[in-house]
């Protein structure tokens, strides 16, 4: 299997605090890789560095064989890294369709087009509508994102990431704040998407993680303490002591 994303000795400090300590992680092409760890382990910090919102203090990040450590976040998105945010981050005044359409539009190159009306771009609208159908939001197409329920916004967030047709989806707690029903729905949806996208999944819902992940990495206090298949991780004594034991 080829390596899609790799971090080499990644370190990020905030003042004296080490949020990411010497993390070397690989995500293989086509795999669903889950990143787990207790609260405050530095998972979101790591995702932010992968996506380019935060710069690492040292170490490097490689994507599709190229060093992207210094690349700004919008360039990383252009080459196929799509992120969904832990705290839902959609465009509140836009309808669900407009949100997804913007993501698809961004993929098609620059937007310095001032005259043609995007509402009349059939291909783009159809594509966005198709993705909304896929995530189960077809009924909400023309509803502003601000009035969607929390679960629906999480679905929309995912739809936006899909519209970028990324090589890798960085999903930061896609089930955060969801009830049991919505969580199960999201798990089913992610299971369907597994075959189409490589994913790096940060999630607290262990049931979902073990159901979805091909491999897991465990982050504790900024350090990677184990990587392996679900069976390996379950059996790993360090992980049990540091993490799973608390649940």
């Amino acid at each position: 299997m080829t390596v899609l994303l790799e971090t080499r000795n990644l370190v990020r400090r905030f003042g004296g605090l080490v949020a990411t300590g010497d993390v070397s992680l690989t995500v293989l092409a086509g795999e669903t890789h889950a990143l787990i760890g207790p609260n405050g382990a530095g998972k979101t910090t790591l995702i932010s560095q992968l996506q380019g919102e935060l710069m690492p203090s040292s170490g490097s990040i490689w994507f599709k064989g190229a060093d992207i450590t210094a690349l700004p976040s919008h360039r990383r998105a252009q080459i196929g890294l799509a992120r969904s945010f832990q705290i839902t981050s959609v465009l509140p005044d836009f309808t669900a369709l407009e949100n997804v359409r913007l993501a698809a539009q961004a993929r098609q190159g620059h937007s310095f087009r001032f005259w043609a009306q995007i509402a009349q771009d059939r291909a783009l609208n159809d594509e966005a509508r198709g993705i909304l159908v896929r995530v189960g939001l077809e009924a909400m197409t023309s509803v502003p994102a601000s009035v969607l329920s929390h679960g629906e916004r999480r679905q929309l967030e995912l739809a936006m990431a899909m519209a970028m047709r990324p090589a890798l989806l960085l999903l930061d707690e896609p089930m955060a704040g969801m009830g049991k029903m919505d969580g199960a729905k999201m798990t089913r949806l992610l299971a369907e998407l597994k075959s189409d996208y490589a994913m790096l999944l940060v999630e607290h819902d262990m049931e979902a993680v073990f159901a979805l992940a091909d491999r897991l990495s465990v982050l504790v206090q900024g350090r990677l303490i184990a990587t392996g298949t679900p069976a390996d991780i379950r059996a790993n004594a360090d992980v049990q002591a540091a993490y799973l034991g608390h649940h």
Binding site: S73, A77, A82, D93, S111, A116
Partner: peptide
């Protein structure tokens, strides 16, 4: 237009727009 959508999106959530590339 495409430009207008990006402009309006930026006003709502600049961080999201960056993450879209």
């Amino acid at each position: 237009s495409r430009f207008g959508m990006v402009l309006r999106a930026t006003a709502q959530n600049e961080r999201r727009v960056k993450a879209l590339g």
